[in-house]
């Protein structure tokens, strides 16, 4: 049962990721990204990280993909060129990505990773996260909070229209 679910979610994830890369329409690419993230959320659930899988759906599906779709609709659709790819860059890119993937896979299969099965019980409840976040990782939590504040200010500054700055026609 768990095995078949793993393969189902992996196929969904990698397949829709490929669709993101290959689809010429940006809106369809964003929706495929959403599907791929749903597959990753399923993988997280299989790894007993239920909180993370819910967070992934909330943050990515609720915020990131929605933002992407919003921006796609803000920008002019007729800026799409006739050809989405160039032949030389497709060949070079495929070879580069295949090399990277093969390298990572051989690193995984030839490395000395433990093949022991995972422990039966794995405590990953909200209480455990809270205990870790407010003891061991208290400083990173504050740094990340500050980072969010800076990002918010940066977005406001970047998207504000300043006087005397003319737009491209």
């Amino acid at each position: 049962m768990e095995n078949s679910l793993f393969y189902l979610f992996s196929a969904l994830t990698v397949g829709s990721a490929l669709a993101v890369v290959l689809h010429k329409n940006t809106v369809n690419a964003a929706v495929c990204l959403l599907l791929s993230l749903l597959g990753v959320a399923g993988i997280f659930a299989l790894l007993d990280a239920l909180l993370l899988s819910v967070l992934l759906i909330l943050v990515y599906a609720g915020a990131v993909v929605a933002l992407f779709l919003f921006i796609v609709m803000l920008l002019k659709p007729q800026t799409e060129p006739k050809k989405a790819y160039k032949k030389a860059s497709v060949v070079a890119g495929t070879m580069g990505a295949a090399l990277l993937g093969l390298g990572l896979c051989s690193f995984v299969t030839r490395g000395q990773f433990s093949t022991a099965p995972a422990a039966e019980v794995f405590h990953a409840g909200l209480k455990d996260y809270g205990a870790m976040l407010f003891t061991t990782y208290l400083l990173p939590v504050q740094v990340v909070g500050f980072l969010l504040l800076i990002a918010m200010l940066g977005v406001i500054v970047l998207s504000k229209k300043f006087e005397g700055q003319e737009d491209a026609k």
């Binding site: 990698v14 890119g93 990505a97 993937g101 995984v108």
Partner: peptide, 23 residues
């Protein structure tokens, strides 16, 4: 880990091949 490597490679392929900044 292999799934993670594959997904990373697919993302890398997209970064190399596509021309639209959003994609």
């Amino acid at each position: 880990l292999i799934l993670s490597a594959l997904l990373f490679a697919v993302g890398f392929l997209g970064v190399l091949v596509r021309k639209n900044t959003l994609v």
